[in-house]
């Protein structure tokens, strides 16, 4: 019997491919944002609103992950964005290899911003680096204010939290302060924006945040 020290991350292959993706993004000066959330939080609706605000001044590409269907990419194309759909057929997260395969034939320098809409799942996607520069967790008021303490991983790795569907707050027992405390328990000082895709409230602040990230990537 012998003991062999390994000290290797089980996700090391994913991390290597993510590093290659990050290199390609940096070379192209492309800002890449990975969006995580539960199913139904409104990621696609937020992207539709983002299109309305930004598509005339920024060149935006979306990679949309779902277990099945091309529905989300279709919605985003109707909203005027270029969109690539990945159907994982069962896999619960996007991996760096899936992104590498999609961007292999894309001229990345033709875009300013790549938004990756991850599979609706708060657990698995948070552990898979795709090579993004920034990670956003989108929550919604209908999910309840305890999501950050139940699913801290997604919040822990996020650079920004968007609380969506705030137009419904008057009708829901949702405690915004408790939500914010939970999110910041997982990640100290996590910035939180409130949005409604129905009223468009807060979408301008979200777009300003994206503008800042795009400028940082170009610098």
């Amino acid at each position: 019997m012998a003991d062999i020290p390994v000290r290797k991350s089980v996700r090391s292959r994913n991390d290597e491919i993510a590093a290659e993706n990050r290199g390609r993004f940096r070379e192209a000066g492309l800002c890449v944002v990975n969006m995580l959330s539960s199913p139904g939080s409104g990621k696609t609706s937020l992207l539709e609103r983002t299109a309305a605000h930004m598509k005339d001044r920024l060149r935006i590409l979306v990679i949309d992950g779902d277990v099945e269907t091309e529905r989300d990419a279709d919605r985003l194309r109707k909203a005027g964005l270029e969109a690539i759909q990945i159907q994982t057929h069962g896999s619960c997260h996007l991996s760096a290899a899936m992104i590498a395969e999609q961007i292999a034939t894309v001229d990345l320098s033709a875009y300013d911003l790549l938004l990756i809409e991850n599979i609706g799942n708060l657990v698995c996607p948070s552990n898979y680096d795709l090579g993004e520069a920034r990670r956003v967790v989108v929550a919604s008021t209908t999910e309840g204010d305890d999501k950050p303490i139940k699913y801290p991983e997604a919040y822990h790795t996020a650079d920004l939290c968007v609380l969506n569907k705030v137009d419904l707050l008057p009708y829901l027992p949702f405690d915004v302060a408790a939500f914010e405390a939970g999110a910041r328990r997982a990640k100290a000082g996590l910035p939180i924006l409130q949005t409604s895709c129905t009223t468009d409230s807060g979408v301008d602040a979200w777009c300003r945040w994206l503008d800042d990230q795009v400028r940082a990537a170009e610098a």
């Binding site: 019997m1 012998a2 003991d3 062999i4 020290p5 390994v6 000290r7 290797k8 991350s9 089980v10 996700r11 948070s126 552990n127 991983e153 822990h156 790795t157």
Partner: peptide
């Protein structure tokens, strides 16, 4: 967030 193989016997 790590998941590492430390060693093998």
């Amino acid at each position: 967030t790590g998941l590492d193989i430390v060693s093998l016997e």
